[in-house]
């Protein structure tokens, strides 16, 4: 314990009459964003040869590149611990990228904080804790639109069109919904900023196969509205089926990169990652 931050040492105290552990943030409130520079003629969103890790820890990503272009669904797959989510978080600015850069819509945003990337047009849906459970569905969507100062009723109507069940349950606390519905709230919340690109971290984790299929359908629908989607998926087969582009990561490195169909057809990918 002696090395860790003494202010974070609670001596194992779990006295709920004085401390509230719920909802406490883990993300570091980072220093100010750096400058944004123009980077023309590049893919719409690309994390280019990213190397880095969390804080002062060892590198998890090694020269890893992830990109998605307009109108595409790009999927990151790979075995457990391959750094799939880490790669996405690197694109979103949640870990230190020590070399490489992140470009969005012709701009170099490598030094921006995650909050500023949201303002720049990134929509991010974390894998867990991705809704405000004590707030109603509608309030969740409103909070998604927090940075917008204009009228966002249209966007909300669009989200309700995409996810009709949410409209039905808009007055219910989001925490009372089923797993699949919660994921829809989470995606809906991210859509409220009218993002230029939507990033989903394992949206189907922990839902039943039927719900999973429905979620994939919804994601395709979102993509059809013209928003490029970058997605990390555990269920490689289904994900690659809907993917325009697939990235197979192994130990933080790009192992295979191709279209979804080509990866599905690649015998080596099938043998190693898709179970034959």
């Amino acid at each position: 314990m002696s090395n860790s931050n003494p202010y974070q040492d609670d001596r194992g105290n779990k006295d709920r009459s004085i401390t509230n552990p719920g909802g406490q943030g883990t993300a570091e409130v980072r220093r100010k964003s750096g400058p944004v520079t123009a980077a023309p003629d590049t893919p719409f969103l690309i994390g280019e040869s990213m190397t880095g890790g969390y804080g002062k820890g060892p590198d998890i990503l090694h020269d890893c590149t992830i990109a998605v272009d307009r109108g595409e669904i790009a999927v990151i797959v790979g075995p457990n611990g391959a750094g799939k989510s880490t790669a996405m978080k690197a694109v979103f600015g949640m870990l230190d990228v020590r070399s490489g850069r992140v470009l969005l819509d012709g701009e170099d945003i490598t030094t921006l904080t995650p909050q500023d990337r949201v303002i720049k047009g990134m929509g991010f849906v974390p894998q867990t804790h991705n809704i405000f459970t004590s707030m109603t569905v509608e309030e969740n969507l409103e909070m998604g639109a927090f940075i917008r100062t204009d009228d966002f009723r249209d966007t909300m109507a669009q989200v309700y069109d995409l996810f009709p069940i949410l409209k039905e349950k808009r007055r219910q606390p989001a925490g009372e919904l089923s797993g699949g519905q919660r994921q829809q709230v989470a995606v809906g919340r991210a859509l409220m900023t009218r993002p230029k690109v939507l990033m989903l971290d394992e949206p189907t984790a922990g839902v039943s196969p039927i719900v999973m299929d429905e979620l994939f359908d919804r994601i395709i629908e979102v993509a059809r509205t013209g928003i490029p989607i970058l997605m990390v998926e555990q269920n490689a087969r289904q994900a690659l089926e809907i993917a325009d582009k697939g990235y197979v990561l192994v130990q933080g490195r790009n192992a295979f990169t191709d279209t979804g169909k080509a990866l599905m057809a690649d015998p080596e990918v099938r043998r190693s990652f898709l179970g034959g």
């Binding site: 719920g22 909802g23 406490q24 943030g25 883990t26 993300a27 409130v29 995650p114 909050q115 949201v118 303002i119 991010f124 974390p126 804790h129 991705n130 809704i131 405000f132 459970t133 004590s134 707030m135 909070m143 998604g144 927090f146 940075i147 919340r189 900023t193």
Partner: peptide, 12 residues
């Protein structure tokens, strides 16, 4: 109060 990290992501 509900979720500090997500609030941060939402620009709060």
């Amino acid at each position: 109060s509900d979720n500090e990290d997500l609030a941060l992501l939402s620009g709060i």
